[in-house]
Amino acid sequence: MGLDFTVLPAFFSLLLVGAGWTIAITVAAAILSFFGGIFLAVIALYGPAVLRYPFRLFAWLFMGTPLLLQLFLIYFGLIQIGIDLPAFVAGVIGLGLHFAVYNSDIIQAGILAVDRGQYEGARTLGLSRVQTIARIVVPQAVRSVIPPIGNNMIALLKDSALVSVIGVTELTLTAQLAISRTFRPFEFYLAAAACYYLINLVLEAGLRHIERRIQMAR
């Protein structure tokens, strides 16, 4: 009985592999959620009705249901209609689409906050509607909403632990594998928590650097 942290070094390489997969799935899902959020925001504000209404249904489904259920549907459900996705891909898609919907709401607010004169000035210069949205409106909107999107990226990192339930060998699952061999849950869950915290510190530092660069560019 009692704590015994001497068991950790023997499983350090296993935890390191898990941390690597956690970073990989976080980065991939963050990229999908960022660009997916931009795409969904543009569709919601500027798309034709035939696209806007399906988007509203899509957003309702992803905002109104648990992320864990969405992961189960993507990984275990799609196989019934012939779509067999690897666990990593299913995890990236599930996390990415889930946070893309939330990023879309934030980006929509940023787009609506852009001065109408920017849009009119771009059209006066001869830019088309699509060029104005892509080159003038969206870049300004994205720059203004980097902080809340950054908060979503941090939440995504934490929620990446949920992909362990579909078999992705990320940090939480590797900790569980070590626990199954040593029966030392406290030590390994604490080690996993420390790893998540270190990754989160690096992510926060990166986001602060991006925010400073954007402020300097204004």
Rank of each mutant, 00 (worst) to 15 (best):
2 G>Y: 14
3 L>V: 15
3 L>C: 12
4 D>V: 02
5 F>Y: 14
6 T>E: 09
7 V>C: 14
9 P>D: 09
10 A>G: 13
12 F>S: 14
13 S>D: 15
14 L>T: 15
14 L>D: 15
15 L>N: 09
15 L>P: 11
15 L>S: 04
18 G>P: 14
19 A>D: 10
22 T>H: 05
23 I>W: 15
25 I>S: 03
26 T>S: 14
26 T>C: 10
27 V>W: 13
27 V>E: 09
28 A>R: 11
28 A>N: 14
29 A>E: 09
29 A>I: 08
30 A>L: 12
31 I>F: 14
32 L>T: 06
35 F>R: 10
36 G>M: 13
36 G>V: 12
37 G>F: 09
39 F>Y: 15
41 A>E: 09
42 V>Q: 12
42 V>C: 15
43 I>N: 12
45 L>A: 04
46 Y>L: 14
46 Y>W: 13
47 G>Q: 11
51 L>N: 12
51 L>W: 14
51 L>K: 12
53 Y>H: 10
55 F>A: 08
56 R>E: 11
61 L>N: 03
62 F>P: 12
64 G>N: 06
67 L>D: 01
68 L>K: 05
69 L>W: 08
75 Y>H: 02
76 F>P: 06
81 I>S: 02
82 G>R: 01
84 D>C: 04
87 A>S: 04
88 F>W: 00
90 A>S: 00
91 G>C: 02
91 G>N: 02
92 V>G: 03
93 I>P: 00
94 G>D: 02
97 L>M: 04
98 H>L: 07
100 A>S: 07
103 N>P: 10
104 S>E: 04
105 D>L: 08
106 I>F: 09
106 I>G: 11
108 Q>C: 04
109 A>K: 07
111 I>Q: 03
112 L>Q: 07
113 A>G: 01
117 G>P: 08
118 Q>A: 01
120 E>R: 10
121 G>M: 11
121 G>A: 15
124 T>L: 14
127 L>C: 04
132 T>W: 03
133 I>G: 01
133 I>N: 00
136 I>P: 03
138 V>T: 09
146 I>E: 01
146 I>V: 05
148 P>I: 02
149 I>Y: 00
151 N>R: 01
151 N>A: 01
152 N>R: 10
153 M>R: 04
156 L>I: 03
156 L>K: 00
157 L>N: 07
158 K>I: 03
159 D>Q: 08
161 A>T: 12
162 L>D: 12
162 L>E: 15
163 V>Y: 08
164 S>R: 07
165 V>D: 12
167 G>L: 06
167 G>F: 05
168 V>T: 02
168 V>N: 03
174 T>I: 07
175 A>H: 09
176 Q>H: 13
178 A>W: 15
179 I>Q: 15
182 T>P: 13
185 P>G: 06
188 F>D: 06
188 F>L: 09
192 A>I: 03
197 Y>S: 14
197 Y>C: 12
198 L>D: 01
201 L>A: 05
201 L>E: 05
204 E>D: 07
207 L>G: 01
207 L>D: 04
209 H>R: 12
214 I>P: 00
216 M>K: 15
216 M>R: 15
